[in-house]
Design a protein around this nucleic acid. Structure first.
Lengths: 343, 343
DNA sequence: CTGAAAGCGCTTACAG
DNA sequence: CTGAAAGCGCTTACAG
């Protein structure tokens, strides 16, 4: 059986309370001599405090929760990996653990959150991928449970701490970049329609189209789950139109990769016959051929700041920043052509 | 404050023991009438059992632990993501959670494991990336704590449950594939020397070289951390040799991607002037140009089986399989040339 | 079929 | 400076 605090107390010849005070280094003074005895006993027995017992007694846990859906293979999205890494590192800096709960079925999602929150398994939660009328956010708000969100609410969808990227600005810049290079008929492969950020990105697309006097054509717009396969499929459909697009804005790099592939399969030279621009700047974007021009989201930084925000909320402090919108940045590579395109 | 079992008992007008029996559905019979009363009270109060208290009392937790090092940005390796996803899904099927602890500094690694194990935070641990004289494995074995390993021990490094890919077979096949296509002077960018699998893969490389009557040249071998940058650097160094290689086996796809880039920067056409073969079959392998020929590791399957194995060990059962070595498979794409290369 | 009680391993007022 | 004791929210033998 595992060694407990009482074993330490017995070996050191002190009360178990004293052991606790030594371990927690306060709040009451312990004589150097006693401390040394206890420390020696701990060392000798290889004692580790039982984390469950500590949490139960302290009425707070040392863990931050994150639910990832395996439905859309969320975790496999390269940008999500950056997020996870930075959150993990920030957690580590604060001595926190991460509890990762997979959700394989949307119907079970609510119960996973309820278990985490009601079961007091975690001290706070990070939510990603805000949806319209997001039940998770409604629940966490109602419970007044500490949480932060990657992504913004819609206007009347409540007020909560978040960090988001200005998606509309990103897609606007993307379209402008395409237009500046001479592309005229620009399609858009958008994200899953349930996501709030899908609307946001579509809005930027339309805004830039309008500003440039280009017509919006709903046949050139798709909403899909972000996978390479879906990007491929959407692009193939666009290319089969009577008036196919000469460029495409994909709302994720994975979609863009699939779209490039579809174009290449039809014998088109990307960056010459057709312009392709992505969103995210995942590692593959730099390594595909041609290298993908894309809108970069600073996921690593977002994860760090999000986690810091959550920690402050958990501690009951007013977070230094509560609602942040970060600008994405255009990363020009070769998939839209490197100089003016002449039709 | 959170609602507790006593609140439920009070509302239902039963003892708190009865509430427990209803929640745990046994082991003692509860009358239908009482059960209904309790269930109604639970529903009404939105009661969730406190997971900490349950774990403490039951003397076991419902969580599986995984330490990932942020040093080598382990988590960002695409193959690791597959592993995490499949482990997560398998955990979910068994009602388990995953505790992910980042390790930012090798010096802290031991203490992270000690906290997980000694602190009884997790019921079992999954170890990845076996190193020579691996302290983690020695520790877990000594503690007789449930764990499984991705990767094999060396001969006298102890006996533990694992799943591994036959790396030597993979690299052997890779080299043979290169030789069959006419490549003659084959370099190898190996993994970090501390990893047991680095040796394994190097062994397959040497074996195939020998079998084909090709000389082993230590100048054509490097051991590096697996990043694109490192692959780039190693390749650049190879190409600067008096007798540069005409092909390279990279022991991970990330290394291969970097190596391809370095070759392309020097104006070489991959698949024509130089052959490149990778290891892993990450998503980018299919999407880079030229598409990367590689040795595929079935990481998703490995994660599932590894997790299943761990669960059986946690339950105290004899695992159905205890030590598994899976064959990798050659995935031929274009980076080694698609037909015989004529020097 | 049900309740009263011990105890999991801690922390922390309370008393000395 | 230190110890005895209450209690966090559960589970589960024990007794009825």
């Amino acid at each position: 059986m595992a060694v407990t605090r009482d074993d330490v107390a017995r070996l050191a010849g002190v009360s178990s309370a004293t052991v606790s005070y030594v371990i927690n280094d306060g709040p009451r003074p312990v004589s150097e001599e006693t401390r040394a005895k206890v420390l020696r006993a701990i060392e000798q027995l290889g004692y580790q405090p039982n984390v469950m017992a500590q949490s139960l007694r302290r009425q707070r846990t040392n863990t931050v929760g994150l639910v990832f859906t395996t439905i859309e293979r969320h975790l496999t999205h390269p940008y999500f990996v950056d997020l996870l890494t930075s959150i993990g590192e920030e957690c580590a800096r604060h001595g926190l653990n991460m509890l990762l709960s997979p959700c394989a079925d949307r119907a079970l999602e609510q119960s996973i959150y309820e278990r985490m929150v009601g079961g007091r398994q975690v001290a706070g939660i990070i939510v990603t991928g805000v949806r319209h009328d997001d039940a998770r956010i409604a629940y966490l708000s109602a419970e007044a449970f500490p949480f932060v969100v990657l992504g913004r609410p819609e206007h009347d969808d409540g007020d909560f701490p978040y960090i988001d990227v200005d998606g509309a600005r990103g897609t606007d810049e993307a379209v402008q970049h395409l237009v500046d290079l001479g592309w005229q008929r620009i399609a858009c492969i958008g994200l899953s329609a349930e996501l709030v950020c899908a609307d946001d990105r579509l809005a930027g697309y339309r805004r830039a189209l309008e500003r440039n006097g280009l017509a919006y054509d709903s046949r050139l717009v798709a909403n899909v789950h972000t996978t390479e396969a879906a990007g491929h499929q959407a692009m193939a459909r666009f290319l089969a139109l009577d008036e196919p697009p000469d460029a495409v804005l994909a709302c994720s790099d994975e979609l863009a990769l699939g779209a490039m592939n579809a174009a290449q399969e039809q014998g088109l030279v990307v960056g010459q016959d057709i312009g392709v621009i992505g969103f995210d700047d995942i590692p593959s974007a730099a390594y595909c051929r041609p290298p993908l021009t894309t809108i970069r989201q600073p996921m690593y930084e977002i994860g760090t700041r999000l986690c810091r925000m959550l920690i402050q909320i958990i501690e009951g402090e007013e977070p230094e920043e509560r609602q942040v919108i970060l600008p994405p940045t255009l990363v020009v590579r070769e998939s839209c052509g490197t100089h003016r395109h002449l039709p």
